Simulated scan of single mutants.
Amino acid sequence: MAADPSTSPGTRAVLDDIDARPGSTASLLRTLIGVYLRPLGGWISTADLVALAGDLGIPPAQARTGVTRLKQKGLLLAERTEAIGYRLAPDAVGMLERGDRRIFEMREMTDADDWCLVSFSIPESERRTRHQLRRRLQWIGAGIVSPALWICPGHLQDEVLEILDDLDARRWATLFRASAPVPPGSLVEAAAQWWDLAALRTEHLAFQESLTGLPTEPFAAYVRLIDSWRVLPYTDPGLPPSMLPADWPGRRSFDEFARLSAALAEPAWEHVRALTRREAPSSP
């Protein structure tokens, strides 16, 4: 799905990061760049980037086309130093840092944690903004209590404020911090109404299934692991156990990701360093 052309470049980067289908060329290249370009000093030669993409099974011509599209989307800037290459666009750094916090610091709520309630009333003349707000609240894992009242973990309040500011919708929204909700039925029933838990379950099971097909080579395995996982920490709000079915698969997903990430990260990084050592400049 293409990003809304009326949004700012920063917004497009955020939306595309969620929209890119895991396992696709666009998604794998974005994951590769997001994980490794900053540790490499923010720059990589075109030849090395294409070579690393090849290690992920992406043919050279397809990789070059994909990189060009990422440049058009504002993630990369063409820059020649000792060789032709790409530098990470400054506007993309904040998006990648937010992604790091989600991907590598997945938070699960407890019953003692606060909630953030988002109440908004956007005029009909701004229905496009209302549509974008609802889409982006869903993308950060917010649930729908009613069309104009959304709920998310309290630690996501700053992200909600960023979305409101980015859409110039702050004047139409009020945020509340709240303790545990008291619905008419059980918390499990309420959670199933506010979030699409059936879809989330399917995502978790698909992620777990993807682990059986990881490559044996650590670099390719690590990038594909991150790529398969990276959407889940956005769409899954990390609800407390009291709001989830007893057989909820989320805990297994979290544990498997943590285990495999810890085992693969260093050998994957060694592979990248060995391949790029000749041309990657020092950190500015």
Rank of each mutant, 00 (worst) to 15 (best):
M1G: 13
A3E: 04
A3Y: 09
A3H: 10
D4C: 10
T11H: 13
R12I: 01
A13E: 02
V14M: 08
D17V: 00
D17W: 14
I18H: 11
A20K: 04
R21T: 14
G23D: 10
S27P: 04
L29K: 00
L29I: 03
T31V: 05
L32M: 03
V35I: 12
R38M: 14
G41Q: 06
G41I: 01
G42P: 01
I44S: 08
S45A: 15
D55F: 02
I58Q: 02
A61G: 10
Q62G: 01
A63I: 03
V67L: 15
R69P: 00
L75V: 13
L76G: 03
L77R: 14
R80S: 10
Y86N: 03
M95Q: 09
L96E: 06
R98M: 09
R98L: 12
G99S: 10
G99D: 10
G99H: 13
R101N: 12
R102N: 07
E105S: 13
R107K: 15
D111S: 15
W115M: 05
L117R: 08
S125E: 15
R134W: 06
R136E: 15
W139Y: 12
A142W: 09
V145C: 01
V145N: 02
P147V: 02
P147H: 01
A148Q: 13
I151Q: 12
P153F: 05
G154N: 04
L156A: 09
Q157T: 11
D158F: 05
D158Q: 11
E159S: 09
L161A: 10
A173S: 12
T174L: 07
F176Q: 09
A178N: 05
S179Y: 03
S179Q: 10
P181K: 03
P183T: 01
D196V: 03
A198V: 07
A199N: 08
R201M: 01
E203F: 01
F207K: 09
F207C: 07
L214M: 09
P215H: 07
T216C: 03
T216M: 09
A220F: 09
A220V: 05
Y222S: 04
L225Q: 05
I226S: 07
W229F: 09
W229L: 04
V231D: 14
P233I: 02
P233S: 07
D236Y: 04
D236P: 04
L239C: 03
P240S: 04
M243L: 03
D247K: 02
R252S: 15
R252I: 10
D255R: 14
F257W: 07
R259K: 12
L264H: 04
E266R: 11
E266C: 01
P267L: 08
E270C: 06
A274N: 12
A274V: 01
T276W: 06
R277Y: 06
R278Q: 11
E279H: 14
E279A: 11
